[in-house]
Computed example of a mutant assay.
Amino acid sequence: MTSLEAAAFWVGLNALLLIVLSARVGRARWKNRVNLGDGDNPDMLKAIRTQGNYIEYAPAALGGLVLLALLNAPIVLVHGLGALFFLSRVFHLLGLGMGVWGKGRLFGTVGTMFTLLITGCSLIYFAIF
């Protein structure tokens, strides 16, 4: 497996996660009969924000993975960052979106920020050296 194939693997898994997050919003809209916005419904707002929060961070994290692969970064770095981002977003879903793990939102947020920090620093390093 090449670094680019590793990046493709993690981008693919994240695409599937986005479908799950989007389906949760659709299901909440159907259940709460809310066509647009959150209808002042806390469950609707959680579903929307869980998906929205993912969308805010995924482009930088996943785009960074692809760029690292194109810069010939080690496969272990691409897999490590891909796994950390994916797991962080699942933790965030379990914490904020589903409310089944109280610390999920915290771990998800910290993991996402750590992923972006390492990805950003790695991109700068591989671009210069």
Rank of each mutant, 00 (worst) to 15 (best):
L45E: 08
R33D: 15
A83P: 00
F91K: 01
A47P: 01
C121H: 00
N72P: 00
A61S: 09
G63H: 06
G104L: 03
T109A: 05
G37C: 12
G95E: 10
R49V: 11
R89L: 12
M44T: 08
A60F: 15
I75N: 12
G39P: 04
D43G: 15
H79C: 15
G39T: 07
V110Q: 08
T50A: 14
T50Q: 04
G80F: 03
F114W: 05
V34G: 04
F91W: 09
F107T: 02
A69L: 12
R24Q: 14
G82M: 05
G111R: 08
L70A: 14
V25Q: 09
D38F: 04
L84P: 01
I48M: 09
R29Q: 12
A47V: 09
T119C: 14
Y57H: 13
N32W: 05
T109M: 09
A69D: 07
G80K: 01
G26K: 03
P74F: 10
A69W: 03
N53P: 02
G102M: 13
L93F: 10
Q51F: 04
G108D: 06
V34W: 07
L84T: 13
V66A: 04
L70S: 06
K31Q: 15
F114Q: 02
R33G: 14
I75F: 00
P42I: 14
L94Y: 04
L96F: 14
N32K: 14
I55R: 02
G37R: 04
R89V: 11
G63P: 01
L96A: 08
N35S: 14
D38E: 11
L45R: 09
G111V: 14
G95P: 02
T109R: 03
T109Y: 02
Y57I: 07
N41K: 10
N35V: 12
G108P: 02
L116N: 05
E56D: 13
A58I: 05
L67H: 00
V25W: 04
S22M: 13
L117P: 00
L71T: 05
L84A: 13
V66H: 01
L62H: 02
L123W: 03
G82D: 06
L62S: 08
L45K: 11
A47G: 08
I19Q: 00
V34Y: 03
M98G: 00
R27E: 11
G64N: 08
N35M: 14
P74A: 10
L21T: 06
A60N: 00
H79Q: 13
L45P: 00
R29S: 10
R33F: 13
D40F: 10
G97D: 03
W101K: 11
G52K: 01
A28F: 02
G63A: 10
E56N: 07
V66Y: 05
L68G: 09
